[in-house]
Design a protein around this nucleic acid. Sequence first.
DNA 1: TAGCACCTATAGCATTGCTATATGAACTGA
DNA 2: TCAGTTCATATAGCAATGCTATAGGTGCTA
Lengths: 242, 242
Amino acid sequence: MSLDGQLPPKMRLLRAAAELLANSAGAPVSTRQITQLAGVTAPTLYHHFGDKEGLFDAVVAAGFEEYVAGERDFAPSGQPLEDIRRMWDNHVQFGLNQPELYLVMFGNIRPESRPAIVADAEALMEEMLNKAAVAGQLNVQPREAARSILAANVGVTLMLIAEPAPDRNLELSTMTRDAMIFAVSAEPANGAAPGDNGRSSVVVAAIALNAALQASHSDQLSSSELKLFLEWLHRISTSPAG
Amino acid sequence: MSLDGQLPPKMRLLRAAAELLANSAGAPVSTRQITQLAGVTAPTLYHHFGDKEGLFDAVVAAGFEEYVAGERDFAPSGQPLEDIRRMWDNHVQFGLNQPELYLVMFGNIRPESRPAIVADAEALMEEMLNKAAVAGQLNVQPREAARSILAANVGVTLMLIAEPAPDRNLELSTMTRDAMIFAVSAEPANGAAPGDNGRSSVVVAAIALNAALQASHSDQLSSSELKLFLEWLHRISTSPAG
DNA sequence: TAGCACCTATAGCATTGCTATATGAACTGA
DNA sequence: TCAGTTCATATAGCAATGCTATAGGTGCTA
């Protein structure tokens, strides 16, 4: 049960704290649990880390290095914006894999103590965005883009962590990710999108959909389905009012 | 020093907790501080709230109602997307005004306990986005848009809270806000900015119709017909490309 | 061997969240 | 009017927490 090995007590404390934190499911982790698992008594902890928070900071620092290593692992693909996407996904995955650690890092940020990590994370992303900027693919300053993207990235990750694991829908992540990247990128995608003056009401919307469907023979519905669908649409669109 | 007045102890406890939490600057607030400020002894707290967390939940609930009231205060301007902007700004302002409360609400979210508030906040935003969808201004399902926007909104607010007050740059907020809104909106804003991710008018119209139908419980179709209809509509509106 | 950092353990303090138990107040039904 | 019941508060204290004053090894250098 005890994390022995011949590792020095400092390391054992770090590992014990990390392990307990990872499996705590939100419950507070006591110094006694940590020291017991590490096979060490209390003063040792305070000698090496000064504080419970000091120990946790050390754990977070280690976790952050792991995070940074993950972010850097992806070789530059030559398409900076694609790298940003992978960076985003890696960030989300890190948060979902180690939710407790992530919450300590990004969930409890307070003005007086925490933003060192945030600054580092921003720098990491800015570095990547700089390449995009050099390639003329950026719409705004890399620093502002990095801050903005990272903020959204953190928000999405927190939301996904808050959701019970089985319900997690990663589409939230990809959608927000692409929205942010698109917003800061200078590329004009492609043209068109007629976008008629959207005045509301069921009838107008139904008529618009009816016309659009017939014009584009969408293959999302079978032909028999489509026939019935259009009939209903007709009933709706010729009704007096919604 | 004590929060007397003739208020009932329950109220005094709530106010004391809220006040201490607001001025705690991140330091933990003990039940003894709370009960002392409220002029009450410990069992009273546990009689009314069961738990320290129960008391904090009540404080959060009160804070959330204040938040919701703020969100609803803005009369619909007739331009739903403009309302969403003000909703976003109000959210950020709420977080900056009551950072401690905000951190309890959105910073410490854990899968097992917290997401009720998140769900409520999402519903609030979805409600607003529905109007945009009905008007044919949305590119994606209102629910997905709401989740995405709210996630970014929370992330930005946390980042701003983490930053020391004097350095806070609200441009981060407005930039991220407009990026998100632009990304989910169907209209090319003005003629100059043509390209968005080319979702066809079929999809936009389907989303609008879907929202309108759900908003107006049309009785043109039987419930079973409607169910199937909506299912098809969903298939169309979530298809990769029209 | 002596001295000197360094690291760890024994034992215990003050504070924390919480509760077993008892007391008071307010209402109800006869 | 008064016993019975329910709700609300208080007295006193428990177990667990973070932390520390003090002392005891250990290994080095001289």
